[in-house]
Simulated scan of single mutants.
Amino acid sequence: MKILVIEDEKLLADSVAELLRSKGFEVEAAYDGEAGAMYAELGVYDLLILDVMMPKLDGFAVARQVRAKRLGVPILMLTARSALEDRIAGLDAGADYYLTKPFDTRELLACVNALLRRQGAQVDELTFGNTALDLASATLVCGEESVHLSAREFDVMRLLLQAGARNLSKEAILARVWGYDSNAVENHVEVYIGFLRKKLSSIGSNIRIETVRRLGYHLEVSET
């Protein structure tokens, strides 16, 4: 399970992230609304934990942007603003639950688990066309054929499957798979796209990874 914490109080964001990691979640943190929205719109997270009062974009704006992209990821808002009007504004912006600061860590964990259960987030595979990606074994499966993916191949393929027909830029893939601080360049993405095309072909998949100049990649189903 991948969780994104968007919180401008770095100490709190990192504390929440460490708590969730100790419970087995994979967690990333963003420290302002603009960066948080960019991460969230990649569409790779199972849950967003979102502060309201942040620089660049507030939490309400981030939630609205995420929902405008038609992303159904659950959103848990954390905020010191406990007035009824603020809670209503958060829910209207697209939040699923509103938790006020200070909060008990047990309540936070209960909210996280409840939202993930409600979302049916215990997904064990992603499918497109005649092909499935088994998330537990990092294996692409098409009928009776299957092929194992390396860790990088798996991360890139998962992003592509979650984006589906929506274009995913090379920059977004680099940021999500290699990280913003990595020395990796766009050629790394091209190499792994090539690996994935060969593996899809080897199992008879009807998935095509299409390249759109300046926009990146998306998936299509071949009709032949």
Rank of each mutant, 00 (worst) to 15 (best):
T139V: 14
V27F: 07
A17R: 11
V147D: 09
Q119D: 05
L115F: 14
A172I: 06
V73I: 11
E190L: 02
I207V: 14
E125C: 12
D181N: 08
F103I: 04
A136N: 10
I49G: 12
P74K: 06
R158F: 03
Y39A: 09
L78A: 07
P74Q: 08
K198S: 10
F128D: 03
I88M: 09
S82E: 14
E28N: 02
A172F: 01
E18R: 15
A136C: 06
C111A: 12
R166G: 00
V123A: 06
D8P: 00
D8C: 00
G94E: 00
G33L: 12
F154I: 04
L168Y: 01
L71C: 04
P74Y: 09
R152L: 10
D155S: 03
R197W: 06
E34W: 08
Q162Y: 08
L48E: 09
K23P: 01
R176G: 04
F103P: 03
V156K: 08
E28H: 03
Y217T: 07
K198A: 14
L135F: 04
R214S: 13
Q162F: 12
Q119L: 11
E145F: 10
S150H: 10
T224F: 13
R117C: 12
A132Q: 15
G216N: 07
S146K: 15
F103V: 05
E28T: 03
Q119S: 15
E18G: 06
L126V: 13
E223V: 11
R81G: 04
D124L: 07
L91H: 00
F195H: 08
E34M: 03
N183C: 02
G216F: 14
S82Y: 14
A35P: 03
N167P: 10
D96G: 01
G164D: 02
G120C: 04
N183V: 05
N113W: 08
A37K: 06
E144V: 05
A63R: 09
Y217C: 05
Q162A: 08
E210A: 13
A93D: 00
L91P: 01
T131C: 13
G120T: 09
P55T: 01
D134G: 06
L4V: 12
R64L: 00
R214C: 08
E210V: 11
L160I: 13
A132G: 14
V52R: 09
E26I: 13
F128R: 02
R208E: 13
G59M: 12
D155A: 12
I6R: 03
L159D: 11
R67T: 00
S201K: 15
M38W: 07
C142P: 06
A175G: 03
A114P: 05
R64E: 15
L200Q: 10
S202I: 09
A121I: 00
F154P: 02
D96H: 08
